[in-house]
Design a protein around this nucleic acid. Sequence first.
DNA 1: TCGGATATATCCATCTCGGATACAACGAGA
DNA 2: TCTCGTTGTATCCGAGATGGATATATCCGA
Lengths: 118, 118
Amino acid sequence: MAQRNLPPVTPAGFQVLLALAGGRAHGYGIMGFVGEITGGSVQLGPGTLYRTLARLAADGLVQEAPGMSEDEPHDARRRYYQLTDLGRQVAVREAELLERLTAAAVDAGLLDGQARTA
Amino acid sequence: MAQRNLPPVTPAGFQVLLALAGGRAHGYGIMGFVGEITGGSVQLGPGTLYRTLARLAADGLVQEAPGMSEDEPHDARRRYYQLTDLGRQVAVREAELLERLTAAAVDAGLLDGQARTA
DNA sequence: TCGGATATATCCATCTCGGATACAACGAGA
DNA sequence: TCTCGTTGTATCCGAGATGGATATATCCGA
């Protein structure tokens, strides 16, 4: 269980943390990722995205990462980010909250309560 | 699957819909319910609560319900609310989004991916 | 080399949130 | 029945978050 005095995050902040939990990514990629996993129902605009990244970085939840990669073509414009240890702790805490809310939705009959891990 | 042209809801709005999915409730009770199922990590203030209820009612997602009940003592101050059909559809859609995000969190290694239905 | 797509960044109006405040009605006890 | 603390609803306000528009620079294919 997480739950200490970790800093709070906004909804958009959690989306970014979740996108980065799978590995480092750059801003534009995060936008696409969020749109994908939410089926398009959540779409971060550039304003929200870069402001959120700046805040998360200032709070020590994410940090810029070296951009070298093998498979992907090098693009000097891209700035890659990755989770810090603190950022991962916060992401875990928020994920646990999500899980609790999902369970409550199942209890309330809003969901069937079976399918998992797409 | 839900997903038509249902109106959007704010995070606070979904908390209220979730609270009402289990049956009708009054404002003060909703506040307590939200605090409970989130382990205290989400707490709606009165400002957010009543503003949210008014907006949900204006959008046709909830409606005021007759307050007669057997077990509970009658209290003329209380105003009970319940989900409309539309409100339930929206709640289902949001719950499905939650489920998808939870699954993504499992995939990203933030959650173990077992325990359910507290 | 030209143009469209990619990528980052900032600005602005609008909306949302939570706390403070106000006030009315309830119940218990003297 | 009178008083008082609690319950319950409602509004107001400042602070902060959102998303869309805009600007600018770089990459890549034709």
